[in-house]
C-alpha cells in the first residue's frame, strides 16, 4: 500500500532527472495501455510515474530535411493515422501501430510504449525493424542512438540504461520504388495478440529487389531482424525460389516457445507463410510507389 507520485514534466531534462533520481522505483507513462493494466494486475508497483505526454519532442511528428520522419515516442496511433503523409510513405509501419488494440486503445497507445514494453509480440516493432528505424534515447549521460531492433533485450526487458528514456523514432528517407507492409497472425480478427508478426520493406528497380529488410515478431524472446531472409530476396525478381528461400530463412530464424498462444511447429511454419504474404503486399506497394 505504497503511495504513488505522479509527475508530468514539460521538458525532457526534467523527466530524465526525476526518472533517474527515483532509481528503479519509477516508471515512464506514455499511453499507459500497458502500464496501467500491469499496475492493476499487481505486476508492477511503481513509486513514481513520469508522464511524458507534456514533452513536445515526444508527441510530435516531423519530416526530416532528408525526407525521413521523426516520430515522438509518445505519439498515439490515432495521431499518426491522422498525419497527412506518414501513412502514404510508411503504410506498413502505420498498419503495425494501428493494429494495436481497439479505437479506444489507439487514442493512447504509442510506438514508444509498444517497444519499451518489450513484448516479443508488439505489433509495431517488426515493421519498424523492416523500415530501418533508429531510436534516439536520452539519459543522465546524454543522448545516444541505436537501431530499433537493439532496444528489446528479452520479454519485458530493454537495453535502455537506468534513467534512460526513449525519445523518438527516426525513419530514413526512402529510395524510389520502396514499399512496406506488416501482417500478423491472430486466431481472431481483432482484440488479440500476434502469434506471429511479420514486417517487410522492399525496394524494387525494374522488378528486381535492390533492398529488403524483414522483421519478425512473437517467434523469439525479442523481435528479430532476419538478415538471411532479406539476402534471399535481394537480387531476385521475387521468383518462387527466392520466396521459398526467404520463407525458409524466416522459419529458421524462429526460436519460439510452445505456449497458450501457439506451438513451436505452428509459429515456425506461419513465419514463412506470413513472409510470403507480406512481401507480396510490400512489393505491390513498391511497384506503385
Amino acid at each position: 500500500m505504497t503511495d504513488i507520485r505522479y509527475l508530468a514534466p514539460g521538458t525532457l531534462d526534467e523527466a530524465v532527472g526525476a526518472y533517474a533520481a527515483a532509481a528503479g522505483a519509477a516508471r515512464i507513462l506514455a499511453g499507459g495501455t500497458d502500464l496501467l493494466v500491469q499496475m492493476r494486475a499487481g505486476v508492477v508497483r511503481p513509486g513514481l510515474i513520469v508522464d511524458i505526454k507534456k514533452i513536445a519532442e515526444m508527441t510530435t511528428i516531423e519530416e526530416t530535411p532528408e525526407g525521413g520522419f521523426r516520430i515522438g515516442a509518445a505519439v498515439s496511433g490515432a495521431r499518426l493515422a491522422e498525419h497527412p503523409r506518414f501513412g502514404k510513405v510508411w503504410p506498413g509501419v502505420l498498419e503495425g501501430i494501428n493494429l494495436i488494440g481497439s479505437k479506444q486503445v489507439q487514442g493512447r497507445a504509442s510506438p514508444g510504449g509498444n517497444l519499451c514494453n518489450a513484448s516479443p509480440a508488439g505489433d509495431s516493432v517488426p515493421a519498424m525493424i523492416a523500415a530501418g528505424a533508429v531510436v534516439t534515447i536520452q539519459g543522465p549521460n546524454g543522448r545516444r542512438q541505436m537501431p530499433v531492433e537493439a532496444v528489446p533485450a528479452g520479454p519485458g526487458r530493454t537495453n535502455l540504461a537506468p534513467g534512460e528514456i526513449l525519445v523518438s523514432f527516426t525513419l530514413p528517407p526512402q529510395p524510389a520504388g520502396t514499399g512496406d507492409a506488416y501482417l500478423r497472425m491472430i486466431p481472431r480478427t481483432e482484440m488479440d495478440i500476434a502469434v506471429v508478426g511479420c514486417g517487410a520493406c522492399i525496394t524494387l528497380e525494374d522488378g528486381v529487389v535492390t533492398q529488403a529488410r524483414i522483421g519478425l515478431g512473437a517467434v523469439a524472446p525479442t523481435p528479430l531482424l532476419v538478415g538471411p531472409a532479406a539476402a534471399a530476396l535481394i537480387g531476385s525478381r521475387l521468383e518462387e525460389a527466392a520466396l521459398a528461400a526467404a520463407a525458409a530463412a524466416c522459419s529458421a530464424a524462429c526460436r519460439p516457445i510452445d505456449d497458450k498462444r501457439g506451438t513451436i511447429a505452428y509459429r515456425t511454419k506461419v513465419a514463412g507463410v506470413l513472409l510470403r504474404r507480406c512481401v507480396a503486399i510490400a512489393a505491390d506497394r513498391a511497384g506503385r510507389a
Partner: peptide, 23 residues
C-alpha cells in the same frame, strides 16, 4: 489451458478466445 502445476494459463479474455463481433 493448464500448465504443469495445474494452473489455468489463460485466465482472461485476451487468451481465452471468445469470438468478437468481427469474427
Amino acid at each position: 489451458i493448464y500448465d504443469r502445476q495445474g494452473r489455468v494459463e489463460n485466465a482472461g479474455f485476451l487468451d481465452y478466445r471468445m469470438p468478437v463481433c468481427s469474427d
